[in-house]
Nucleic acid binder design. Structure first.
Lengths: 188, 188
DNA sequence: GTCTATACAAAGATAGAC
DNA sequence: GTCTATCTTTGTATAGAC
């Protein structure tokens, strides 16, 4: 992908994470990176094409991390849990973004089908990763947990997604740490 | 509020809950209830006015329920928790909606300031209600809990908001029950 | 690859008749 | 209160010069 295409994807991701997909226009992107609207269409013919590219890059970036930790024999169960939490914790501070796919999930049926499919992948992949982690922990007894591996995965995933929304809507930075701390204690 | 105004608010709520605020137009509403765009402007001069009215009605409807249960001397702590969970559980089935304010939180900075303020109120009121519930339970020992009353409130609230998004994005109805079941077990 | 120019549809909103 | 008609701006997208 060209340098310009990368800049377009990056700024689009940021704009979606702050305002949502429907509210972002090619004009917004053009203004942000100092080119013309028509140039964006050269790289991404339709807005849906761009949206898909944004989600795919986001998914890949996060999943690469998770898979690397999962495959690391030196990483403890706790290390792996922290690897899951880390991206959410990174939204602390005055960051106005939420999870890309969390934002998109809120306007799900306004999205083109191709984007919907990518959002679905994100949810399934992250919940699946957590389920695998907790299933392994259940086997070797390295973590207690409040329900089945899948139930626990869903609780953890949903709680962090919700915490991001709450942090921003209630303008309270401590939301993320509060939920992360409580989740850690549940399996400690 | 007139009958037409009520119908406008109701359909707008449903459209926001399925597609988000930015993706809904006056034309969509007009088509849905069989009137003309201009008629909507008579009742709600601007889209932001309508958005605010929608959130206010949503907030009032849910908070009235919660406050009634909180004030009911015959309601146990468990009854009160169920009253909190009930609106989330109602999204099970083939309902394509999520929580109105959960959807709006995802596109927070695309909203007019007046709407942002109403969304903030929702988050603070519901987390506050839960915090009060758990604080009372801590005093009388009627529930165990995994953290402080406020931390527990944030966990419960975020987890249910996240569960709604996950249910729809992953197209898996069991998400909501799984999370609700796990939460109940945490304080049982 | 980026630009100017433009097409075309849809958006939010207002004026004024009924 | 609802309508038709219209305004103005913005949206996505394409054509074609450079």
């Amino acid at each position: 992908m060209s340098d310009t295409a990368n800049r377009i994807v990056d700024i689009m991701a940021e704009l979606i994470q702050t305002r949502g997909y429907s509210a972002v226009s090619y004009q917004d992107i053009a203004d942000a990176i100092g080119i013309r609207k028509a140039s964006i269409h050269y790289h991404f013919p339709s807005k849906g094409d761009l949206g898909e590219a944004v989600i795919r890059q986001y998914n890949k970036s996060l999943l690469d991390e998770l898979e690397a930790v999962a495959a690391d024999p030196g990483a403890s169960a706790s290390d792996k849990l922290e690897a899951f939490l880390e991206p959410y914790l990174s939204f602390r501070g005055d960051d106005q973004r939420v999870c890309l796919c969390g934002a998109l999930a809120g306007e799900f049926f306004a999205l083109p089908k191709g984007m919907q499919a990518e959002v679905t992948k994100f949810f399934e992949a992250h919940q699946g990763w957590l389920t695998n982690l907790f299933a392994a922990c259940k086997k070797d007894g390295s973590m207690k947990m409040p329900g089945s591996p899948e139930q626990t995965a869903r609780l953890f995933f949903g709680a962090m997604q919700g915490a991001l929304l709450a942090k921003r809507a209630a303008n309270d930075d401590t939301q993320i740490d509060d939920v992360a701390t409580t989740l850690r204690a549940l399996v400690a």
